[in-house]
Design a protein around this nucleic acid. Structure first.
Lengths: 247, 247
DNA sequence: CGCAGCCTTGACCATTATCAACGCTGGTGG
DNA sequence: CCACCAGCGTTGATAATGGTCAAGGCTGCG
């Protein structure tokens, strides 16, 4: 849930740069070499297939992951099977920081990928000796909390169209932060997953997508990628919250 | 949003104990005397009246508050006035930790109270020299994030009855953690505020409350306090999520 | 080529929002 | 001290958004 890397100083992108990959950790810019080596020493490189379960809600929270490739969905379930996806993770994001003794969520791979896995205990012990890393994590946690608040606004008060528009704007922003133009959006998840992230049903997601398509706001390239044709209109539909000012 | 105190070691309660109050800070158990004194040195004691605005969404995030008395609502607005309350803060809670340059939320006093105010810059500088405090804050941020995830599950997937039942269970838990029996619940907020916290309308909150009353699950003592008559039934209605196990 | 899973569309329905009226309550001023 | 008033809360009638159920189309893989 917590990404240590926003823009890697080596290549300016979110994804781990070659240097980071070599070190199996996306912690560019935060730690000096010695710290990196000590982190690497307590970590293991894992790969995972699509659909693989990384973390199960209720299990003892022994591990902590840094996603280095692929995508992951993090979700909570109600006893009757209703699901709320609380976030999608991509390369550079952390999984398992916000836990107590047991995981309060489950995590499954959306696609094949890889992660760097730490033992939480060793990690916490090391953390105490790396104040810079701790500060960086606190910042990340703050950002995560802000994102969660935005999602609460979305889930509690936005209409179906506003939710989907907000979601597409988020993906667009993410693409821009990763160095893209923010016009072509990849959707590595199914409609059901989008629905469970936005508090809707697949049918509603599908209908709203169609409406946006008919109105010419978006254009579907494939089922899992689209192009934003009218960014201004999409932004307006997303219902920018009262704290966002145009520059 | 982040409480430093869970159970104060001096008296076992959430509210700042007498020692904390004397120091104008609810950081019992985390810092040695010297750290407490240095924190005190960069803080000021403020009081506020009901309805007073402590933080306005979009303003530069210069301050950080530790609530020492009273209650506060934290919320986000959409341009057309729709409001989502992202949390209620009580004595011991922190306000303003999860911010970037500008506040991403507004905060208003529910009731008269008091807060200890820090300049964020001085605070961050001091934080770097108090690793124990930083670790404690990171833990707090984790708990906040978990709470936000639970609220996302509530807002995205729970029915009106489940939302209200969950809310009452939360207040009950809070009371128990503060040393109470968890049977008598205080509601220092209006129905409209409960509605804006649960993603409902005042009418729905009122109707659902009535239904719980008729079913004998709760009993209203006054408009702003009630008694839980059938805790087991309320817990069942709250739809405990799949990760909660009965002991 | 066929099948399974995902997606879309349609018809209908339910939950909750909206609109409206009225009751309660606490504070204020006559 | 009482009456009034404003704001909050409750209840009812109606409406709308989005959910449910159902059928059929697409797509990608074996």
């Amino acid at each position: 849930m917590i990404a240590l890397v926003e823009a890697c100083p080596n290549d300016g992108r979110i994804n781990p740069c070659s240097q980071c990959s070599a070190r199996r950790l996306s912690v560019c810019g935060v730690l000096a070499d010695e710290g990196l080596q000590r982190l690497s020493a307590i970590s293991e490189n894992d790969t995972f297939d699509a659909g693989e379960i990384l973390v199960r809600e209720g299990d003892p929270a022994t591990n902590l992951f840094n996603i280095t490739a692929g995508a992951v969905r993090v979700y909570k379930l109600l006893p009757d099977g209703r699901r709320q996806i609380v976030g999608f993770l991509f390369a550079g994001d952390f999984l398992g920081l916000a836990t107590g003794d047991r995981y309060a969520f489950s995590a499954e791979a959306l696609s094949a990928g890889a992660a760097c896995r730490f033992h939480k205990k060793a990690y916490r012990k090391l953390l105490a000796t790396l104040p810079d890393l701790e500060t960086a994590l606190l910042d990340r946690a703050s950002h995560e909390l802000q994102a969660a608040h935005n999602q609460m606004l979305l889930l509690g008060r936005k209409t179906a169209v506003e939710r989907l528009a907000s979601f597409l704007m988020d993906l667009s922003d993410r693409d821009r932060r990763a160095g893209g133009a923010g016009r072509i959006i990849q959707l590595p998840m199914t409609r059901a997953e989008i629905a469970d992230y936005l508090g809707l049903t697949t049918e509603t997601v599908s209908r709203v997508t169609s409406r946006l398509k008919v109105r010419g706001v978006i254009r579907l390239l494939t089922l899992h990628s689209l192009s934003i044709e009218k960014p201004a209109e999409l932004a307006a539909l997303a219902g920018l919250d009262a704290g966002d000012f145009p520059a």
